[in-house]
C-alpha cells in the first residue's frame, strides 16, 4: 500500500470507475452526474469515458431516481444512483426503505436489488437548515438495507467497491466535509475490498473508547491527540457501517477501557449514539465503570449565521470535555 495523498472524492471516483470497467452492468444515474460532471465532481470525466448509456443524467425526480434503481437492479443491472445531497433522499424514502429494502423480503427471496445509493451528507458552510443534515441513522433503521459511511479515502474506496459488488442494496454516504481530505490509497492496479459490516480501530488506547463514523472519526482522533497530552489514551473505533454494526469491535474495546463516548454528526434523538449506548448497557453492563456519553449535533435545525451554526456542530473539544466528565 503506497502512502499517497488522495482526496476522498478522488478515491470514490476511482472505485466507481474501476467497478464500471469491471462490470458492464454497473452504471451511474442522478442529477447532474453526466454533463455537469457531478455536483461534487465525483463523476468528473465519466460521460466522456463511458458515454450516455452508462452515465445518465436524471431530471430532479428523487422518487423516480430511488425507484428506477430498484427496478433496474431487480432486472439485472447494478445501478449506482446518486442523490446530490442526502437531504433530497428524504423525498425518496419510500423507494429506499419500502422498496429497495423490502422487495427481496416480501417476495420471499424471489428478487434481489443489487444497487448502491450514493449521497453526499453532512453540514457546515452555512448551507442552512434544509440542506444541513447527517441523517444516516434514519436509513440504518430499516432492515433490508446496508448503510456505509466512510471516514477517509482508503475506506471510501474499499467500501464502495464492496457495496457495488454485493447483491444487497446499500446506502453509501459521503461526508461533504471529507471530500477534499487527503489520505493514503492503494497503488493503481492494487485492489481493496472492505467487507460490509466490518469496523476498524483507528487509534489504540486503554483509557476510554471513542465510537464514531464518518466525520465523527476526525473529531474523535483530534480529541484523542489532545487527551494524550494529559496522559489519557483514547481508543478510536470507526464503525464504518451503520448497518450491520460491528459490535464485536466495540465490545472488545469497551472490555479494555470500561468507558465510552460516542461521537456523531447526526442529531441526538433516536440516534447512532442512542443505539450504541443501549447495546453497551444491555451487553456490557458488568464492564461499565461510568455513564456512556454522547456527543452529537445540538437538537435544533441549522441556522444560517456562521457563529451560531458552529455552536450546534460537534467538535473535538466537546469530545474532550465529555471524556473528562467520565474519567
Amino acid at each position: 500500500m503506497a502512502a499517497r495523498n488522495v482526496a476522498m472524492r478522488e478515491a470514490i471516483r476511482r472505485a466507481l470507475r474501476e467497478e464500471m470497467h469491471r462490470d458492464e452492468n454497473v452504471f451511474v444515474m442522478g442529477e447532474e452526474v453526466a454533463y455537469w460532471q457531478g455536483t461534487h465532481r465525483v463523476t468528473r470525466g465519466f460521460l466522456e469515458e463511458f458515454g450516455e448509456r452508462r452515465v445518465r443524467d436524471t431530471p430532479i425526480s428523487e422518487m423516480a431516481i430511488g425507484g428506477v434503481a430498484v427496478g433496474a437492479a431487480m432486472a439485472g443491472l447494478r445501478p449506482v444512483a446518486e442523490f446530490m445531497t442526502i437531504n433530497f433522499a428524504f423525498l425518496a424514502l419510500d423507494a429506499i426503505a419500502n422498496h429497495a429494502g423490502k422487495v427481496r423480503y416480501f417476495f420471499d427471496g424471489m428478487f434481489k436489488a443489487p444497487l448502491v445509493y450514493r449521497a453526499a451528507s453532512g453540514w457546515g458552510n452555512q448551507a442552512t437548515a434544509s440542506h444541513s443534515h447527517a441523517p444516516e441513522p434514519i436509513f440504518a433503521h430499516f432492515p433490508g438495507l446496508y448503510v456505509g459511511c466512510p471516514s477517509n479515502s482508503m475506506d471510501a474506496y474499499g467500501m464502495l467497491k464492496t457495496a457495488i459488488r454485493d447483491d444487497n442494496p446499500v446506502l453509501f454516504t459521503e461526508s461533504i466535509a471529507l471530500y477534499p481530505k487527503p489520505g493514503p490509497m492503494p497503488d493503481e492496479g492494487e485492489e481493496l475490498l472492505i467487507p460490509i459490516g466490518k469496523g476498524d480501530i483507528k487509534r489504540e488506547g486503554d483509557h476510554v473508547t471513542l465510537v464514531a463514523y464518518a466525520r465523527g472519526v476526525d473529531w474523535a482522533l483530534q480529541a484523542a491527540r489532545q487527551l494524550s497530552k494529559d496522559g489519557i489514551e483514547a481508543e478510536v473505533v470507526d464503525l464504518r457501517w451503520l448497518r450491520p454494526l460491528d459490535m464485536q469491535l466495540v465490545y472488545a474495546s469497551f472490555k479494555k477501557t470500561n468507558r465510552c463516548v460516542i461521537v456523531e454528526e447526526s442529531l441526538p434523538m433516536y440516534s447512532f449514539g442512542s443505539e450504541i449506548a443501549a447495546l453497551l448497557q444491555e451487553n456490557m453492563f458488568d464492564y461499565m465503570d461510568a455513564p456512556i456519553k454522547r456527543v452529537a449535533a445540538e437538537d435544533v435545525p441549522l441556522p444560517y449565521s456562521k457563529t451560531i451554526e458552529l455552536l450546534a456542530l460537534p467538535n473535538a473539544q466537546k469530545v474532550v470535555d465529555a471524556v473528562k466528565e467520565i474519567l
Binding site: 447483491d167 444487497n168 475490498l193 454494526l245 464485536q248 447495546l279
Partner: peptide
C-alpha cells in the same frame, strides 16, 4: 428472518453483529 438479505460472502458477521440479517 429469512430473505431479509441476500446471503453474501462480502458481508462480515460475528455473533455480536447487529442488523446483518
Amino acid at each position: 428472518m429469512r430473505n431479509t438479505y441476500v446471503p453474501s460472502d462480502l458481508v462480515y458477521k460475528t455473533e455480536s453483529s447487529i442488523g446483518a440479517g
